[in-house]
Amino acid sequence: MKLKLHVWRQKSPKAQGKMTSYDVKQASPDMSFLEMLDVLNEDLAQKGEDPIAFDHDCREGICGSCSMVINGQPHGPEQGTTACQLHMRKFKDGDDIFIEPWRAKAFPVLKDLIVDRGAFDRIIQAGGFVSVNTGGAQDANCIPIPKHNADLAMDAAACIGCGACVAACKNSSAMLFVSAKVSHLALLPQGQPEKTRRVLNMVNQMDKEGFGNCTNQYECEAACPKEISANFIAKMNREYLGASFFSQEE
């Protein structure tokens, strides 16, 4: 199949970027989207042009590295799929495809399609953990956890930290990412001791990083490659308001 790509090219964080068009003459429907870009990059490199820089690593949909908005949708048109697992059979011969980086103030572009997602790490640093040092943990089966809660916590913990939620949200809000971690730990007994501090500190850090606010449109949920539910956002709202008004935390 033949394709016309329109790709965001930006040399460095401070450089002016622009959309540039490329023709892909031979793509196979069985290729993954990133393999299609590999082929284009080989071509560019061969011609002495700078290949398109994009983040990728595991290429099996779990590391969360890949991060590109394809035709206005983070990770492209297929539900519950990262860009690396998206295959060209989803497109038609002759299609125009727009490829852009995640757009958010909190995710500055480093080069082309690569953005800096350090803000997510800093949010986790603010409280996305259970403070338990190595050694001395009690026997794992001492804490029975209702299967339903454990499963729900797993659903929240499935987040791969890719940032598609931010990219999809018209406000560049990180609520789905933050709420997934808050909910994962708040649903488990291990997370209870630090529950109030955790949600207060994580939301505080999220605001500080310059993410926008949630306006309940659920674009994040639709774009999430792990299909994490926006219900976790409601849970975080409840946790946050409860911690603010009814806990002793200052």
Binding site: F129, V132, Q138, N141, A150, D151, L188, G191
Partner: peptide
């Protein structure tokens, strides 16, 4: 396993709540 459960790793469980 003890350490990971203490950290909140959501291992699969049975209906009785055990691993």
């Amino acid at each position: 396993i003890d350490q990971c459960v203490a950290q909140g790793v959501p291992f699969a469980r049975e209906y009785g709540g055990l691993l």
